[in-house]
């Protein structure tokens, strides 16, 4: 258990152990990127998340699996500020109290999210999509008067190459194939330079080859970034997973390596028993 001695909102700087916590700056010094404790969310009496606790280490690649309705998407909603939990704590690093922040603030703090259904700006070109996602001044004055500098252009070109969309630079994103949209969204995520990436079914609709490349990409990202991947494609999970968490009815059912989880009696019952 880590100790929480300061929240993101408080002005004071308090001493915890040997170093100083600075509100508004990401602090991963304890090696924890995401810390969820006793989260509860209910919709009209239906408990979507039930006393969920989860810790993601800095640089970790974690896969989350679970049957439909296990609360995977709702958990992402809580982390990204889209849904406020009824109770519980959610911290990003040691300084950001996620339950008190709005979506844009959380994104700014360094959490990027890819949706289950690929959402890109369909009217904008691939280039514009990436430029909008780029880490930059995102206030209205900034975007009204700022001009794109040379480094930013280079970074966008780099990203386009990475997601293999350099030939579609000026094509409106709405005209891309499904798999390409998935890649574009991943590219936008990377453009944000987040510390924690939440990826909801990233390989749905991708060809085998694309899936393979995605797996490579994710593995190469781990270490520098923390990744949370929600996926139904077990083969894909198997190819990237080091540690797997199984969610069931809103709480953690099992956690461990892929083989451990696969041999867990309760997991087998949930997946096969009914």
């Amino acid at each position: 258990m880590m100790s929480i001695s300061a929240t993101a909102n408080s002005e004071e700087r308090s001493i915890s152990g040997a170093h100083v916590l600075i509100p508004g700056e990401l602090d991963l010094s304890h090696g924890v990127a995401l810390y969820l404790d006793a989260i509860n969310v209910s919709f009209d009496g239906f408990k979507a998340i039930n006393n969920l606790s989860l810790t993601i280490d800095a640089g970790e690649l974690r896969c989350i699996i679970g049957p439909n309705g296990a609360g995977k998407t709702t958990m992402m909603d809580v982390i990204t500020g889209k849904t406020r939990p009824d109770s519980g704590t959610a911290f990003f690093g040691q300084t950001f109290d996620l339950t008190r922040m709005r979506e844009a603030q959380i994104a700014h703090a360094g959490i990027g999210r890819k949706f289950q259904k690929p959402t890109v700006f369909e009217q904008h070109s691939v280039f514009d999509n990436l430029e909008l996602a780029l880490k930059a001044d995102k206030s209205i004055w900034g975007s009204l008067f700022s001009r794109r500098n040379h480094e930013q252009t280079e970074r966008i070109e780099e990203l386009m190459e990475l997601i293999r969309l350099q030939d579609f630079c000026h094509r409106p994103a709405g005209l891309l194939a499904h798999g390409q949209k998935q890649w574009l969204e991943i590219g936008m995520l990377l453009a944000q330079e987040p510390k924690l990436l939440l990826l909801d079914e990233p390989v749905a609709g991708m060809t085998d080859e694309e899936t393979e490349r995605t797996a490579e990409l994710f593995i190469s990202l781990a270490g520098k970034h923390s990744l949370v991947v929600v996926e139904h494609d077990m083969e894909f999970v198997n190819s990237i997973a080091r540690k797997v968490t199984v969610l069931h009815e809103g709480s953690v059912l099992a956690e461990g390596s892929m083989s451990e989880v696969q041999n867990d009696a309760r997991v087998i019952e949930v997946y096969l028993g009914r």
Partner: peptide, 12 residues
Amino acid sequence: DAETRVMFCGYN
């Protein structure tokens, strides 16, 4: 076109 996406890109 996609307000939620904009928010998750870090824009308010």
